[in-house]
Design a protein around this nucleic acid. Structure first.
Length: 458
RNA sequence: GGCGCGGUAGCCAAGUGGUAAGGCCGAGGUCUGCAAAACCUCUAUGCGCCGGUUCAAUUCCGGCCCGCGCCUCCA
């Protein structure tokens, strides 16, 4: 089998292959900007990339995959956050990097092999900008900032298929003034490689041949990809919103500097929608992992829900989908407990892997999974099942995160009374007390040897 | 205005030129005093609308309606 993935550049499904002689598949996934907790839309992309990472390991071997995902720890937002909180940039970005790692772990995402930071690669970025200056692809503006000259790269726009970047009537930019520093640029579509220091940047400045300042956002990924994966990589991934201008700019920078193809293939996952709209603070439909855990959902259910739609289609996220995911996961746990450790080694769950290998069709994989589980004949073996769980990244040992709220004394007393009545076979009293508990918002679950109390589900 | 995507059962969501995977919810049943859990069974003659091609279209083509995203920091 081979892993096939839609390539955003050629617009066709292509087989993934390593191009380097060492047989190591190299892929770069644009990571988060660490100034606040990531939301579940961000995590959709990271979870999808995690499934891809797992598939690659199954296909090429664990030591034949090199996965790089950056952390953007210097930009307008991180600097603003540090300024607003009167803290150092490093303190702010470390806090949110740690939170990001904790969330990723909760979602059972494998850590990338290298996780470079922008501030840790200033030299590499400066070197690359210098290279672009020497090649005539960049220029220094009056304020000391350095811009990439878009007109110097004839292939610009190939990825996003947008040639003309001028304002169009009806565009989001129409009516607004152009970028603040547009007059500094030779062309409105030129983008910053190096941003000259401004008072608002505070202490966050680095030296460069063009004066103090900080790197632009786009050059970060080009420089770190080059350093850790080489001039030509096998795959570059990210969310669709990065397609333009970020990825378009990366191609321009890298190919102008290195003179060779930047990435052999591109993959973009679609947006997660909430209530039919893209998540945004202004719409008030933005969820973080913590928001959902606080509602009683387990991170694994969130992972499941994020994989329930095709990664290249917008997925409308709802709380209902989380309920469904929680139930489905419980079913998987029950099935796993019933599977035989090692029968005849027929790979019953191969169709699950096959669906994933077919352009990361996660919903089809989940469908195949249950179809196989529901079959009456045959006994699927555990190793095959576990391989499918590994590929999907489902950790079935994780318990449902039911909030363990302790019942107040009067509720506990009622429960005791009901249990006693039941033991005495006074079912009328027992039933009446169950209703009373329910009215108070508590559900009593009986077992053979006792009972448990849980807050009633809405 | 440009570029792109989507509209499949109550909800979520695969898929195919030959008659619709799967999950959730719901209904019925078995089992337990009841409830919960578990297990069994059932649940779209139809895939936005209108035309066209075809022996056959939800699946191909054309038009239309509706929704969403990008073009601005963004996964």
């Amino acid at each position: 089998m081979a892993i096939k993935l839609f390539d955003s550049l050629s617009r066709e499904v292509r087989e993934l292959t390593p191009s380097h002689a060492d047989g190591v598949f190299r892929f770069y996934n644009c990571g988060p900007t660490v100034y606040a907790p990531a939301h579940i839309g961000n995590f959709r992309t990271f979870v999808v990339n995690d499934v891809l990472r797992r598939l690659l390991e199954l296909e090429f071997g664990p030591d034949k995959v090199k996965h790089v995902r950056n952390v953007t720890d210097v930009d307008d937002k991180t600097i603003k956050r540090a300024r607003d909180e009167n803290r150092s940039l490093a303190a702010v970005t470390q806090q949110w990097t740690d939170k990001f790692h904790a969330d990723c772990a909760a979602l059972n995402c494998l850590p990338p092999h290298v996780e470079p930071t922008a501030t840790g690669h200033i030299r590499e970025q400066v070197d690359m900008i210098d290279c672009l200056m020497r090649h005539g692809n960049a220029y220094r503006a009056a304020d000391g900032s350095v811009y990439f000259k878009v007109s110097s790269f004839s292939n610009y726009g190939r990825l996003s298929r947008v040639k003309e970047r001028e304002l169009q009537p009806g565009s989001a930019l129409a009516g607004k003034s152009q970028a603040v520093d547009a007059d500094e640029k030779e062309d409105g579509s030129d983008f910053a490689l190096w941003k000259a220091h401004k008072p608002d940047d505070g202490e966050n400045r680095w030296e460069s041949p063009w004066g103090p300042g900080r790197p632009g956002w786009h050059i970060e990924c080009s420089a770190m990809s080059k350093k850790h994966l080489g001039d030509t990589i096998d795959l570059h991934t990210g969310g669709v919103d990065l397609l333009f201008p970020h990825h378009e700019n990366e191609i321009a920078q890298s190919e102008c500097c290195n003179g060779v193809q930047f990435s052999r293939q591109w993959y973009h996952s679609e947006h997660l929608l909430v209530d039919g709209k893209k998540m945004s603070k202004s719409l008030g439909n933005l969820y973080t992992l913590d928001d959902l855990v606080a509602k009683g959902f387990s991170p694994m259910a969130i992972r499941y829900a994020l994989l329930a739609g095709h990664p290249r289609k917008q997925l409308n996220f709802t709380l209902d989908s989380l309920h469904a995911a929680e139930k489905a996961l419980a079913t998987l746990r029950a099935h796993r407990a019933a599977l035989a450790p090692a029968a005849a080694a027929h790979d019953a769950f191969a169709p699950v892997i096959a669906a994933l290998q077919d352009d990361l069709n996660t919903p089809a994989a989940l469908g195949a999974l249950f179809t196989i589980l529901n079959r009456k004949e045959g006994q699927p073996d555990l190793a095959s099942f576990d391989r499918a769980m590994f590929a999907l990244g489902f950790d079935l040992s994780a318990k449902t995160a039911a909030p363990k709220a302790d019942a107040p004394p009067e509720i506990a007393a009622l429960a005791e009374k009901r249990w006693a009545a039941k033991q005495a076979k006074d079912f009328a009293t027992a039933d009446a007390l169950r209703k009373e508990l329910a009215a108070a918002g508590w559900t009593m679950l009986d077992r053979k040897d006792g009972y448990s109390l849980e807050p009633a589900k809405k």
